[in-house]
């Protein structure tokens, strides 16, 4: 077992884990943050996407021990402490960008990263980035619409 110290959504965490425990499993099982979902565990579906030191990673393709000293952001960190949804989450609800909700945390974190990048977002970039993850319910159209709407509201849309 290895001790790992890191922060999640700004809070310090310490976990004793086997090296083979993935970051996603560590967040779920050791930190109780079950918003990060596992859809394939081999890096294709993107449901487990979290931000590690500011970059989106497949939580199933990084081991928990690799998070030593890292700053992790998960879906649980998006809304305000009182539960108020942030601009991206609101856009997902307004645009019906989710149905079963299982892929949603991964899309939210992927889009969060993209929207925070300098240079803004255009249609090509939007499709290129969001093609990283799979959704089985929505047909993607409303996910794209939601992120587009959030980008517009945030003033980073270059349509």
């Amino acid at each position: 077992m290895t001790e790992v110290r890191f922060t999640v959504n700004g809070a310090a965490q310490c976990a004793e884990v086997e090296p083979r425990l993935t970051l996603a499993d560590m967040l779920r099982e050791e930190c109780g943050l079950t918003g990060t979902h596992l859809g394939c565990e081999h890096g294709v579906c993107g449901a487990c996407t979290v931000l590690m030191d500011g970059l989106p990673v497949r939580g199933c393709l990084v081991f928990g021990v690799q998070a030593e000293g890292a700053d992790i952001r998960t879906v649980e960190g998006l809304a305000a402490p009182d539960g108020t949804l942030n601009v991206l989450q609101r856009a997902f609800q307004a645009q019906h960008g989710l149905q079963c909700g299982f892929c949603t945390p991964g899309f939210l974190m992927l889009a969060t990263w993209m929207l925070e990048q300098p240079g803004g977002v255009d249609e090509a970039r939007l499709r290129d980035v969001l093609a990283s993850n799979l959704c089985r319910c929505t047909g993607y159209q409303n996910i794209l619409a939601a992120v587009r709407a959030a980008a517009q509201e945030m003033g980073v849309w270059k349509g």
């Binding site: 918003g35 879906v75 998006l78 809304a79 949804l85 949603t104």
Partner: peptide, 8 residues
């Protein structure tokens, strides 16, 4: 939606 969007 709200709980699903919060990862809850």
């Amino acid at each position: 939606d709200p709980p699903l969007l919060r990862g809850e």
